[in-house]
Design a protein around this nucleic acid. Structure first.
Lengths: 221, 221, 221, 221
DNA sequence: GATGAATGAGTTTTCATTCAT
DNA sequence: CATGAATGAAAACTCATTCAT
């Protein structure tokens, strides 16, 4: 048993196993939390879904809420990735907003249930039971903030009509998140995106014609 | 003490007490459900909040879900009242939409927490746990349907730009419901309404100028 | 409102009503106790079955166990009536036993469920929960005692073979009570009685031939 | 501590503990069910009586009725063992019945309370509350069936007097089960058996003298 | 006297969490 | 480190009993 080999490789192997187990647990938790709700999901069910022993859960999470946090952190990371768009800094605000819309709708469609979970949890943050994610702002807020920046830019550049930036960004965020509403998914994703871009750009005072035409040609992205 | 008076009032007295108790329970349930969430609220807590005995709860509600239903029914009634607007049938669609927006935003502001509860509950409808109200459509759906009718009317009359009616009504419903998002209430209600009307009418292709000015004589911020 | 008439008749009328109510409650309790068991029967159910108000139950019975006692007392009275047979004192013991058998089987068939309830209750008398009837001996014991007297008489008179009187009376009581066993009622009552008389008289050493013949002709009773 | 020994014994140790716990629970349940009745026994009491934690009960039994089933299954197994007597197939029916009687009385004496519980439960089978054992026939029925076979054999061979086989087997079963009646146990077991054999064989028309004398050389009391 | 509304003690059951193996 | 057995706190729900009308 060569010490060097063991000490060098052993931690790595373990670490990989640990990571695999943790991932399995988080994935299982996401499936069950979003399907049945947080309270209705038992730890035993999560462990089973992850094909791991019952007690093993507690070797990876302090708590059931820790698992929830882990699930939500994924969603937060996803949103952060979507919202952070430094490369859009040099395109016109309208174009940047269209791109953001595209990314948001696609991400929302992909993570509908987790986003809904996040929304639900954020409603009860700071209340008696502390389920919540650590200190992330609620989804609509994050989204609205990102949009707000773009609107401010567009107003400044004269692209967008003047108006209350905060309110309008909230409205747009609301329109974006409408895709989370239950009967979602009945439209083609691309159609939703096109319509939404048209909708919000018009609302911001941008002449729609070309924008829409462009998008129809699927050229924008 | 006239006998007739006694026999006439006697049943009423009990009934009034019953009604008072029931109202107290519903109010208590609404407070706790919206504050802590449905699952986190115990029946003991509801009874205590209503200042009634524990078992008394069960004389008025079969179930915890029955109390939830009662709470939501209030909200449903409120929305129904808001969405039903026969008197708007003869005004232009744009004006009708503006009025609807006004009513919705005011109602949402008044019932923020209950509407949020409704939204939350409707996310888990059709899942393992059957919390939901009997057969009420989710809030966003009801709202979107009402809006959809107006949009269709406006498109037909030429007031609104053509486009997917269903999608656009959904976007507007989302914008409306944005007021439910946590950091709400930081704006004057009237300002929100004005901005929202401006926002959605522009999005539908209506020239905004007069509309905004008309509403309160306030200049758009 | 003539005082005399009222004071004279009023109590009687009331008493009749009271008696009627009480009877209804006892009958309802018997039906439900025997159908569902004592513990599974709620006072509300008894009152409803008796078509009386809920709280009325407590004007007639101190307790749920009081209702049980009332039900059992009926059965005890019935058994006492069946077992007391002074008029059989001057017939031969065999004939007296046959008559007793006849009466017991008919009573048991008529009161199967109450007797079973009695048996069940007597199993747990003197235990933690005091359900039991006041101080009545269990059904098998009462029955065996009555039989024991007859056997003693028959042994003394030489009709019956000698043997342990107590044990044999117990065996016969057991045979009698077999009719309480679940799949009862598949035989003609008279056939059961005939077979049982034949069985027990043989067991006691009485030549069966005539006895059986007689009974077949239905002449004995 | 040899590794092999550990790996071999390790699983067994747990299993043994599990078995011990389960046995403790069943024993506790039997004690309490028979002492206080099924309904009057709480799960907390069973767990306490078994000296185990409250929740532990539910690791071994789905339900209180599951514990009842486990208790009754013991009794059913015991009865099955007693009633199955293939080795008696070649002895005369009278002798086989005498042996069966012997076994039944001894088993009944040993399991008086459980048999009584079984009887009690079978009275309420098929009613609203489904307590009963899965699909075991009631005790008296099982017993009567076994006896019925012997009587049929004896009648065919000419040992027993002709007569209704079903009824007579029921009577004998009743006599056997009389030992379950409360004031039992005041007689020597052997005396009961002797008297019962004499009783039932006479009842079936078998000349008693030898039979009784043979059994233990004791003269009939 | 009849009634049923109010009440809370008592039971069953679930499940997060601990801990010995 | 993985596991699952043990545990009891907590919650829903029932129902006997009391009491005001």
């Amino acid at each position: 048993m060569p010490i060097s080999g063991v000490t060098l490789e052993s931690p790595t192997r373990l670490e990989r196993k640990r990571a695999r187990n943790r991932d399995a647990l988080v994935a299982a938790a996401r499936r069950l939390f979003t399907r049945d709700g947080f309270e209705a999901t038992t730890i035993a069910a999560i462990a089973e879904e992850a094909d791991l022993g019952f007690g093993t859960f507690y070797r990876y999470f302090e708590d059931k809420t820790a698992a929830l946090r882990a699930v939500l952190e994924e969603a937060v990371r996803e949103i952060d990735r979507v919202l952070r768009a430094e490369d859009d800094a040099d395109v016109p605000a309208a174009e940047a907003l269209a791109r953001l819309t595209d990314r948001v709708v696609r991400a929302a469609a992909r993570n509908r249930s987790v986003f809904a979970l996040w929304w639900e949890v954020s409603m009860h943050s700071g209340k008696s039971r502390r389920l919540g994610p650590p200190n992330t702002p609620p989804l609509p807020v994050s989204l609205a903030q990102a949009i707000e920046g773009l609107i401010a830019r567009g107003v400044e550049s004269g692209e967008f009509a003047p108006g209350d930036t905060a309110l309008r960004s909230g409205f747009i965020a609301g329109a974006h998140l409408h895709v989370l509403a239950p009967p979602a998914g009945r439209h083609e994703e691309q159609d939703v995106i096109d319509a939404l871009c048209d909708f919000e750009l018009r609302a911001l005072g941008v002449a729609p014609a070309q924008g829409t035409k462009d998008r129809k040609g699927r050229a924008t992205r």
